[in-house]
Structure formats: structure tokens, C-alpha cells
Nucleic acid binder design. Structure first.
Lengths: 218, 218
DNA sequence: GGATATTGGACAGTGACACTATCCGATAGT
DNA sequence: ACTATCGGATAGTGTCACTGTCCAATATCC
């Protein structure tokens, strides 16, 4: 398969495919001549993966490069997941004192929840930054325990995901990693969309006089 | 308060504040002279809101402008929430046929869940796009019902949020809207971070041979 | 076998984005 | 009086994700 066919099958323009090749998101095809390369099914899957990561999960090229790099280096599932989780987060930047304090509390919570908390985990970092922002702007003095419902909700969806994919760990190993990456990223927008819609519904309900029980008579 | 003080109190550079003024994210201060303006507490809050939306929620200036615009126009909570929910989503772009089909199913699901599904809702759009991507790349033929756990999880967290903020609808009306926007956006990264950490834990557990049963004793 | 199209690869250019810098004449503070 | 800072307008910067152009070397069609 040459690049024009790869382009046809994936809907990605040749110019963009070349760009991905340059950036290392796509492995070079096997050269059959100085100016003739051959691409296979794995290239098609990879190109689609990159597009999904760009358009659905909104990752940057650099973030995707980190993931495909781990994939191409043949790393273990654990490492690929770690890299992917980190790719979804943001650049470090040192914590402010307030964030340091929040970090300590967050770590404590994560420990009681039995969640991993690699020091450099960007998910942990994101948790700290957001939690601190919430405390500063929305609920001063909010205890970390207030985050437990979010952890529970996350646990519930992950449990549902596992239940829905019984064979996940026993499929073609070449594709397990890709699928894990896709599963991790593609469902994020779904979860957020439902939360947003639920918030909207909440307001609608309120305006219709169906004030939630807890809330005052306003 | 003049612009330099506003800058000091918010940590936003004068150049950036001027940029926000130009873009309409920040209302102009009251002029006391052709080149002297006075800013107040609401400007401090607004500048902080903009920063939180940029740095924590990762919204673009255009998305933030849509939100602050609704805020400044004095729109009702319902409209502000709608605008905010939409700001969190992405550009429309016409649906592909496959997405149209997915949209019909998603709408059916939303109806049974009692969630609002404004045709132009970007949350709905995001749901459709992501669901279709999942079906195309991960689980061909996946029924929409598979999304129910996500809706349930979202409902759970929103319920917890409402329970945690009893007086939400009966506070200073000027700030209710700002707080609603912050609540909607600031907790998103938290929910996602927990899901990512839970996925990581899942893999660790698996590697240790502790294949997750239905519900662990935890 | 000769004309035309396409290829892989290198490199320059583009448009959007979020600032950042510079300049201006007017005013504030000392 | 004189320096610093002001608001406002305009231009410039760096990054990002492509996109376009050029090249000599094939491939393809007649």
C-alpha cells in the first residue's frame, strides 16, 4: 500500500501523513525503492488512532508522540498506560505553596483510596491543581474528602468498563495496547458530556420549581 | 483601583489585562479621566475567573468570551449554563452519516434518561462524536445503552455536588452565576484525573494477578 | 519506449491563537 | 517641574498543526 492509498483509507491527507511521518507518529513504510515505500494495516490503524486522539481526545501532537513512542518501543501495558495517563495531563510547573499543601492532602486521600500516586503522575498533578483552584475560588477550606464522590464515580465507570470488556487482556497483544489507549481517552468526553447535560437538567428542574430537597426555599 | 493594582491582586500581567479588556473578557473600568480608569472587586473576581477558565479548564479565549458575554449581558442562570456547557464543547461541523445514526440513538438514550438534548447542544454533539468514534474504533455495534453507566456516574457526582452546596440558589445573585460556571468547569479535571488513576490501578492489579472480581472487598 | 503522473523526502509558508512589546500623549505623585 | 505610570492603539512574537512547493526518482499508461 502506498501513501495515496493510506490516505484514501484513513481520510488523512497525504501532506498530513507526511507530517506525521516526520514527527514520528507514524512509522516509515518499508522502502522498495529510494522513492517508493510500502504501508500496511498497522499503518492504517495507527493513522486512525492518531486522528482519534487529535479530534476526539484533543491531544496535541507532542502528547500523541509520547504515546505512539511508547507503543513503538514495545513497552509493557503498564508503561504505556502510565505514559498515556501522563499525556492526558499538562506540563508540570512547580507547585505554589498552597498547591503543595493541597498535594499533601490529595496524597493522603489517594492512599486511603488505594490509588497509585506516582510523584510525577500528571493525573495527580491535575488533581492537585484543580482541587486547589476549587478551594481558592469556590469553597475555601473544602476538605479533600469532598472529592470522594468523584473517586467513587470514576471507580464505578471503570468497573463497568472492565465488565463490558471481559477479554481485554487476552486479545492479540499488538492491539491490546492500542485499545487500552483508546478506551482510556475516547470515553472521557462521554463522561464529561453527561455531567454537563446533568447540570443543565438540574437548572431546568430548579426553574420549574422542583428545587432539590437539600436546597433552601430561596 | 487602577490597572497595576488589579494586576498585583490577580497575578495577571498588565499587558494581559489590557488584552482581556480588548477582547471584552473584562469590562472597562470607570474612567475618572481620559487616561485613568477605576477597577473594583468585580474586576478582581472576573480576572481570576478568566484565569481559572484558561489554566484549569483549558478554555480558549473565544470560549471564555462567550461565557463572560452571557454573564455581562445579565442573562438568566439557565442561559448562562447553556452557554457555558456549549463553550466546553467544540465546533459543530456537519455530522457524517455514521454520526447521524449515532445521534438518533444518543437522542433516544437522552430521552429515556430525562436529559435535555437541545439540537445545538455541544455536549450532545460531543457525546455523538465520541460514541461514534468508540463504535468505529473500539466496539463495533456497541449499543447506546452501554453509555448508561457514564450517565449514572455523572448523575451521582452532580447529586453529590448539589448536596454539598445547599444554598447555591440563594446567594448573592451576582455571584451565583460565576460560581455555577466555576462548579461546572473546575470539577471536570478532577473527575477525569480519578478515572485515569483508577485505570492505572486496574492495570497494576491485573499485573499482580489480582484480576478484578465484580466488586472487590476493597 | 516515451510521455505523464505519482512517489518519498526536504523545507518553506500559512493561519490561528494567546499573548507581549512598543509607542503615544495625558495625568498622578513628589 | 519632572519623572513614573496611566489608558489605549498598534504591531510583533512564539507556538502549533498543518499545507504547499520543489526535487529527482520511479511507476504507469499508451
Amino acid at each position: 500500500m502506498k501513501i495515496s492509498e493510506l490516505s484514501d483509507q484513513t481520510g488523512v491527507s497525504i501532506a498530513t501523513l507526511k507530517f506525521y511521518l516526520r514527527e514520528g507518529l507514524l512509522r516509515p513504510g518499508t522502502l522498495t525503492a529510494p522513492n517508493q515505500a510500502d504501508y500496511g494495516e498497522s499503518h492504517v490503524r495507527r493513522a486512525r488512532l492518531v486522528r482519534a486522539l487529535r479530534e476526539v481526545a484533543h491531544l496535541s501532537i507532542a502528547q500523541i508522540a509520547a504515546i505512539t513512542g511508547a507503543l513503538d518501543r514495545g513497552e509493557e501495558l503498564y508503561d504505556v498506560m502510565g505514559v498515556t495517563v501522563d499525556s492526558l495531563g499538562e506540563r508540570p510547573a512547580a507547585f505554589t505553596p498552597a498547591q503543595e499543601a493541597a498535594a499533601a492532602e490529595v496524597d493522603r486521600l489517594l492512599a486511603t483510596l488505594g490509588l497509585p500516586a506516582r510523584e510525577e503522575s500528571l493525573a495527580r498533578q491535575q488533581l492537585v491543581v484543580s482541587f486547589e483552584a476549587v478551594r481558592e475560588m469556590l469553597f475555601p477550606g473544602l476538605p479533600v474528602e469532598a472529592l470522594v464522590p468523584y473517586a467513587r464515580a470514576a471507580e464505578d465507570v471503570v468497573r463497568a468498563e472492565v465488565a463490558a470488556t471481559p477479554g481485554i487482556f487476552s486479545v492479540d497483544p499488538e492491539q491490546v495496547l492500542e485499545r487500552a489507549v483508546l478506551g482510556l481517552t475516547l470515553f472521557e468526553p462521554i463522561l464529561l458530556a453527561f455531567r454537563r447535560l446533568t447540570h443543565e437538567k438540574l437548572v431546568v428542574d430548579h426553574l420549574e420549581g422542583t428545587a432539590p430537597p437539600e436546597a433552601g426555599p430561596d
